[in-house]
Design a protein around this nucleic acid. Structure first.
Length: 260
DNA sequence: GCCAACGTTGGC
DNA sequence: GCCAACGTTGGC
């Protein structure tokens, strides 16, 4: 079976939730190599993960940060299995309403493959998608109008909110190509951000390791927030169970602690 | 920090 | 099972 393609979001910026840093950047991912994608608490995203197979390709996306966009390529390395963090009351994404006899939330393992040579900012995709033209801007002519069309129909652009998304094969190829070749840096990005080279630096790309906060390995993905919130209501039990998990949970996604 | 878009919840 | 109210996502 040929591999399927997906996009998964993580938050590269630090945020403390229940005493844990939920950050998970491309740097973290690169140094950890393989991580479980726990914390998804959205049914649709969960179902999407359940349909993943080992070997499927994943676009790793930086979300809820200064320059959101696609940073790396990864691969599914373990198919869906119960997300034990849902049962851990100390975990930000504890879900009081599930129990072990009947797992509700699932996760997959994902293994880092490589960074894109050119971080693909969401703003670029939006700008292509929002254009009335069907031909790419200069610098991007290699994507052709099929490329433009593919971008215009991406869920990332048309619907946004989902933290785990399907990407179709052609679109995936196109994005990888974009990430390898770049070509927009002197055009659209520079235009809108006025001179600001939004690519490498914000994302910790390239050689310089920039100021990387604390240690990698922890970060949450978007959906967990809800669960984290609910969780406050409960807070019973303090015992960490023996789910047989020996590696400390790597949160991922995001929790929006307190906002507004 | 704001707030639009959209998902979830719960009353009926 | 509709739908208004509410809560969250996540870009800007």
């Amino acid at each position: 079976m040929s591999p399927k393609h997906w996009l998964m979001k993580a938050e590269p910026d630090s945020r403390i939730v229940k005493g844990k840093d939920v950050k998970f950047s491309v740097d973290d991912f690169e140094s950890i190599k393989t991580t479980s994608w726990e914390g998804v608490r959205n049914a649709e995203a969960r179902n999407i993960m359940k349909s993943m197979s080992v070997g499927d390709k994943v676009l790793f996306y930086h979300s809820n940060c200064k320059t959101p966009g696609i940073a790396a390529i990864a691969e599914v390395s373990k198919e869906a299995y119960p997300d034990y963090t849902a049962w851990d009351p100390d975990h930000p994404y504890f879900d009081e309403k599930t129990d072990k006899s009947k797992p509700k939330w699932y996760m997959v393992d994902v293994t880092f493959e490589s960074r894109l040579a050119h971080f693909i900012p969401l703003s670029l995709l939006k700008s292509v998608a929002g254009s009335s033209k069907n031909d790419p801007d200069e610098g991007l002519s290699y994507i052709g109008n099929q490329g433009v069309k593919a971008i215009k129909t991406m869920p990332l652009v048309t619907r946004g909110r989902l933290s785990v998304q399907h990407v179709d094969a052609e679109t995936y190829d196109l994005l990888v190509q974009l990430g390898e070749r770049g070509g927009w840096e002197d055009v659209s990005s520079a235009k809108k951000k006025g001179k600001k080279r939004a690519t490498a630096e914000d994302e910790g790309h390239g050689a310089i390791e920039e100021t990387r906060t604390s240690q990698p390995g922890t970060a949450l993905i978007p959906e967990q927030k809800r669960a984290a919130k609910k969780r406050k209501v409960v807070d019973n039990s303090g015992t960490k169970d023996e789910t047989g998990v020996d590696e400390k949970p790597k949160l991922r996604r995001s929790i929006r602690a307190k906002r507004r």
